[in-house]
Design a protein around this nucleic acid. Structure first.
Length: 536
RNA sequence: GUCCCCGGAGUUCAAUGGAUAGAAUAUGAGCUUGCGGAGCUUACGAUAGAGGUUCGAAUCCUCUCGGGGACACCA
């Protein structure tokens, strides 16, 4: 068991037992928060339940902490994990990992290899992550491209946490914007989009197709190819490209609306058909069929989500959207609930990217063709750098993107710091060559007593926790943070402990540690979708 | 006007209501008998403002100021 999970379990048991003994009154056991102390002398983990209980019971938290600590120590197996548990002001209980536990972490990594860090939390439930889904009316911009690395990594994390994952891109290849695209390519008075790609299409297509809608369809295919190309450069692979037009071909939208009608959730007003979204917590009702008999975007989206939940049988769907779609969340959620799939849809909103050029924010507009595209970025910087750059930021950070700064920082990007650690390890292992004596089941870690060796093992042991936490709160940027901390632990170890030494037993132990580190780094970089180079 | 984000070292970003607010970068000072110096060590440096909640607030509440976004029979 992981040390962190162990703390939660034994603490719960201890508190319950103290309640049974009448030492605490019988309120519900509080949720055990396992904290990570900032100060090293406070140990590896800490819990603050004593202060929570102290507040409820109006008693001194220190006494309560002592009582819990005593109760904890009655567990025989606790010293498999910790060699020191202490109470600290004003009521923390701090846990220090034992060497035995840290050594076992090394074994674990060696044995599990590429599976190290994998969990069974998801119980193979089917989860779809839909991200980017930018309209095929222009190239991928820096703004809507942000969802690419985020959604991709979120899906990777959930997969390792034990879910069955599908990555999807919803292509809006139907309706008004396709018509507008056609007019834009024609450059007539109803044109809406501009930009290089529109100019190209104007040159190549206008002579062949006259009808604006047909032209728009053709243009969108070409643009989608361009987007797919960019997606590929970003090292993202989708499992499904879903086309909005297929919903119309199969009359899925009509079917969806008639289901809602049968449930008496549709009414007519001013020639339009309205969905009673307010019954499901939305602030207003939403139009599904306009008075001109065409349907709204929401109507198609509902049909699409019906497909996700009923045809594809996803237990959960996570949509990663730009913050400009904030206003659509309530409507879609209401509709999904009305269709009988309450609680299965989650929406993550990514805040906008502000592009700064020459110290001035510039208006990003696909319509005006002033947006900086992902391709612009990928022409200047390697995909690893671009991914890492976006992945360092949390979803609700309004990030400032300065092209000049990005270029300037490219060479200093922390991704190289992490990759350098990996290449260094690879280099040492190459030098060690055939002297590596253990392929698996190595038991010689007990020679690792140096502070830096133990610190490195500590970091290795965090990978499963990182995956668990991230699979729950979707804070993907935790992974880049972790990758850097793992690399730092390695670099520090490297600086103080030599691996290729005469003492054969210690040498084998350190080689084992290196291999465990390489496995952990590789798994982390895989999660991030960043390459792990043998040489740099 | 209503709703959602954000405001922090010179700069770009971390920090479940927890302990001395962390990194990177920039700047200053150091480190090589050996496995990759793209590294290591060290110094300097920050929570927009005013109240409140509590053992404890960058974090929660109220107000002010500043920035971004949303409030369609658009997609």
């Amino acid at each position: 068991m992981q040390a962190k999970k162990y703390i939660t379990t034994i603490t719960e048991n201890s508190i319950q037992s103290l309640q049974e003994q009448g030492i605490f009154s019988a309120f519900a056991v509080p949720i055990i928060l396992v904290l990570k102390p900032k100060e090293k002398s406070f140990g590896d983990y800490a819990i603050n339940v004593a202060m929570e209980i102290g507040k409820k019971e109006n008693r001194n938290p220190m006494e309560i902490a002592e009582a819990i600590k005593e109760q904890l120590a009655k567990n025989d197996d606790i010293f498999n994990y910790f060699d020191l548990i202490e109470v600290a002001d004003p009521g923390f209980i701090n846990f220090h990992l034992s060497k035995q536990y840290l050594w076992s972490v090394g074994n674990e990594a060696l044995l599990q290899k590429e599976k190290f860090g994998n969990l069974v939390l998801g119980k193979k439930q089917k989860v779809q992550v839909e991200f980017v889904s930018a309209n095929p009316t222009g190239p991928l911009t820096v703004g809507n491209g942000r969802g690419g690395p985020y959604g991709d990594v979120l899906a990777n994390v959930l997969k390792r946490a034990g879910y069955k994952i599908e990555k999807a891109y919803y292509v809006n290849d139907y309706g008004q914007q396709i018509l507008a695209l056609g007019h834009s390519v024609l450059k007539d008075n109803q044109a809406k989009y501009t930009g290089e790609i529109i100019d190209e299409l104007n040159q190549s297509l206008v002579s062949k197709i006259k009808d604006p809608y047909e032209l728009g369809k053709e243009a969108s295919k070409y643009i989608l190819k361009n987007i797919k190309n960019t997606i590929e450069k970003l090292n993202i692979k989708y499992d499904e490209w879903f086309f909005e037009s297929s919903l119309y071909a199969k009359k899925e939208i009509d079917k969806t609306i008639s289901i809602l009608k049968d449930k008496d959730l549709i009414y007519s007003e001013e020639g339009a058909e309205w969905f009673k979204a307010r019954q499901f917590g939305d602030e207003r009702d939403r139009v599904l069929i306009k008075s001109d008999k065409s349907n709204t975007y929401l109507a198609a989206d509902l049909a699409y989500h019906k497909y996700k939940f009923e045809k594809k049988k996803f237990n959960k769907v996570i949509n990663v959207w730009g913050a400009d779609h904030f206003g659509d969340v309530a409507g879609l959620k209401a509709g999904v609930e009305a269709l009988g799939h309450k609680g299965k849809l989650e929406v993550v909103l990514l805040q906008f990217v502000t592009v700064v050029k020459d110290n001035k924010p510039i208006k990003m507009s696909k319509r005006l063709g002033t947006a900086i595209t992902m391709d612009d970025l990928l022409d200047e910087l390697p995909a690893d750098v671009v991914r890492f750059f976006f992945l360092q930021k949390s979803a609700n950070t309004h990030l400032n993107f300065d092209m000049n700064l990005a270029k300037e920082q490219s060479e200093k990007n922390p991704v190289f710091y992490v990759q350098y650690a990996y290449a260094r390890i690879a280099s040492i292992l190459r030098s060690a060559g055939s002297s590596i004596k253990h392929s698996k089941g190595f038991k010689g870690f007990a020679l690792l007593n140096h502070e830096k060796e133990l610190d490195l093992l500590r970091q290795i042991g965090r990978l499963p926790e990182i995956i668990e936490e991230t699979s729950k709160d979707y804070q993907v940027h935790r992974l880049t943070q972790y990758a850097m901390e793992l690399a730092t632990a390695f670099h520090q170890f490297y600086n103080e402990c030599h691996v290729l030494i005469d003492d054969q037993k210690l040498k084998q132990a350190r080689l084992g540690l290196l291999i465990a580190t390489r496995i952990t780094l590789k798994n982390t970089l895989d999660l991030l979708g960043v390459s792990a180079p043998e040489k740099m």
